[in-house]
Structure formats: structure tokens, C-alpha cells
Design a protein around this nucleic acid. Structure first.
Lengths: 193, 193
DNA sequence: GTATTGTTTTGACAAAAGTCAAACTAATGG
DNA sequence: CCATTAGTTTGACTTTTGTCAAAACAATAC
């Protein structure tokens, strides 16, 4: 497992990490594997773990009136966490589940905090991750605020072109704030008049 | 104008700032006033300014198919910026306008960067601001994803109980992702069956 | 290969919200 | 104080999406 390669990869995306910092990150974290369907965080739990996905994908979701609503998907080179619990040290409003058999680098809030204190490049890296996440949420809000179901779906495809091969449509629908049936109709070319 | 008092106040909310750091922040920034309706950032402009609101309020908005859609409101002790342009150094997708006559502390991205390098507490402060903004967006996304118009409005009132006294209903409606007419009907007790 | 389970599609109907137009009300500036 | 403008409400109608139920399809395990 070439973890350095992955860290260089995500360093390019956010902000590069020195070798020393990478090494310390590697010894402070561990590689874990999860099976499809495994739930690693449940509603009400405190979670201070984050998962950098090497292979596979995961989703965060919550239950509203008993219905499963997806909030966030994470694929290779992205970081998953129950962010509300992670940052605010409160019980998680979310569940976190792996959607495919996955390999991840698992690390804790404590690791982030101590590495941030020690390595300025790490602090900058995390700050960049958070900033980008914030801007991603902005964009998502934008697409959900006044777009019709079909436009929301097209926008999602423009970001993750083959998401439908990896994530069941039920989850994609709830992520877009629409029902499964509506998504199904949108995808059917006969209904696009 | 007691700027120290304000900085202490928002230090309490996010992360406290040392006196030395506060002083340098004060000399690096300036107090400005804006009239109701003044637009300080326009779509397409590069904006690397942020505004800490001392008195008054502002909104960020964008035009979709010629319609004015509000994205974000800011009141006393909150920070307004065209965040996409501010952080990514790209042309702003937003307009930023003051909704009331306002007094603000105006500072630039450069100031943030240089103070972040010099003062660890400032870097932490900014990181906290960004993190809280991110969590705020999460919550907003949550309320818009599967709630009906009425629920979205009630949720907004729970955060800003008297927002309707300060922000015109048109802006509140678009912020909630609904039309002005729908908001008007929701607010009319006769229509709540 | 068949049973079982999970996922997606389709149809008929209902609910929610949007659109357009007009009326009404409040605020502001001579 | 009146005229003008900005902001809000109301009504009639349309569009979009949701709901519930059933069928079709796909994946998986035995």
C-alpha cells in the first residue's frame, strides 16, 4: 500500500505536506478496511475519527421521519467524517456508512490537532480542506436553492460523471432533495419533453 | 468606536485574540460606513475584502435568470465576504450589498494571511470562523433538503427571530428557496390549516 | 438455476409550490 | 400632505414533485 503516493496526491489537491510531516501522519494513523454496508458512525455517537479514502466510497446520512436521507458522498482521495461531531464534539446527527468495500486511512481529531501544532504545513493543509469543503457546500446549496430536479441531477453528473455506477439511485435522489421516483422519471429520456 | 470591545466579543464566539494581535489587526484594517442599498461587490469582480459588521446588516446575492436570489445575510459581529472570490481568487459569482446603513471593519485577504503567519491565535481564529461557516452551511443545507416551505421559514426564525424586521421578505423568500408569494401565504395565519 | 432480496420503473392521483396579474399597504421625498 | 415608489398580499390557474401501490428488473446466495 503506497500511502506516500496518496498523500502526495491529496497534497497536490489541497496544500503539500513535507516528508517529515507525512511520516508522522502515517505512524499516527492506521489503514483499515470496511465491507460494503458497514456503518462506522451512528446517530447520537461521539465521533472524532476521519477517514481518508484510498479505495471505495462512503456516505453520510440521517433519518428524517424514518426516511434515510444522504447528505454527503466520499470517493477516493476524499476525506469522510461526521463533521458536526468531529469539529464540535457533540453527538453525531449523522450515520456514516461504506457503500463499497473500502480501504481507508483512519485518523483522529487529536492527531489533526497535534500535527497542526507541530507542522505549519499540516495546519495549512487542514485549513485548505475545511475551506474547500465550505466552498463545496456553498455550491451545493446554490444548486439546490432554485433548480428543478432535472437541473440538480445534471449538475451532480457534471461533478461525478459516473456516480450512478457506484451509488444506488435511492441515495442519489435523497442527496438531491428529491424522491427516488422523481429521479427515475428524470433519468428516463421519454419523460424529457 | 470601541473596536477592542467588538474584537473581544467575537473572540468569545470563535477563538480569543491577544491584545497585541488585536492592535495589529486594528491598524491593518479600517472602519468604513455604507449606506442602505450600497453594493460593494459586483458579479465578475475580484474581491479580497471582508467586512466585520459593527452595526447594520448586509446580504450576498446572485442573479439567476435575471432574478435576485439571496445567499447569505450578515448582522452585527458577523463577517461578510464574497467567499468564493475571497478564498479562491476568482471572479465573484455574488453581489454584496448593505441592507441597512452600516458601520463595518474592513480588512483584506492579505491582512488575514500575514496576521495568520505572525499570530497563531489569529490563524486559529480564522480557522474557527471558516469551520463555523462550514457547519452553518451544513445546517442550512439540511433544512433546505427535505423541508417544506413553512418548516424552512420556522427554522430561520429560530435562528434570527426578528429577521423580518430587518430584511425585506423578498430576500428572505429567495434565501429559503421559495417565492415571495409562497412566503407571504405561509406567514398568513389563515392559510395554516 | 431458482429463490430471495434489493433496486428501479411505471401509473394514477394528491399535495405543494410556482406563475402572472392585480390590489393593497407602508415608506420616503419633495 | 400628497405623490411616488417599494414592499406585501391575494386570487386563479399551472407546473412540478410527492405519495402509494404494483410491477419489472438485477444481484446474490444457496
Amino acid at each position: 500500500m503506497d500511502v506516500e503516493k496518496i498523500l502526495n496526491e491529496i497534497g497536490k489537491i489541497y496544500s503539500p505536506l513535507s516528508n517529515e510531516c507525512q511520516q508522522e501522519f502515517i505512524v499516527s494513523s492506521k489503514i483499515s478496511t470496511f465491507k460494503r454496508g458497514e456503518v462506522v458512525v451512528r446517530e447520537g455517537q461521539f465521533s472524532e475519527k476521519a477517514y481518508l479514502i484510498i479505495k471505495g466510497c462512503s456516505r453520510a446520512y440521517y433519518l428524517k421521519d424514518g426516511k434515510d436521507i444522504s447528505d454527503w458522498f466520499t470517493f477516493e482521495n476524499e476525506i469522510m467524517a461526521s463533521i458536526v461531531s468531529f469539529f464540535n464534539k457533540v453527538p453525531s446527527p449523522h450515520y456514516v456508512e461504506f457503500v463499497e468495500d473500502s480501504i481507508v486511512i483512519e485518523f483522529s481529531k487529536d492527531t489533526i490537532d497535534s500535527l497542526s501544532n507541530k507542522y505549519h504545513d499540516f495546519e495549512r493543509f487542514i485549513s485548505k480542506v475545511v475551506t474547500q469543503t465550505m466552498l463545496g457546500l456553498c455550491e451545493r446549496l446554490y444548486t439546490i436553492q432554485f433548480n428543478k430536479a432535472g437541473e440538480r441531477y445534471q449538475h451532480l453528473l457534471s461533478i461525478y460523471p459516473n456516480i450512478t455506477n457506484r451509488i444506488p439511485l435511492t441515495h442519489i435522489a435523497s442527496y438531491l432533495g428529491i424522491t427516488l421516483e422523481t429521479l427515475s422519471r428524470i433519468r428516463n429520456p421519454k419523460n424529457r419533453i
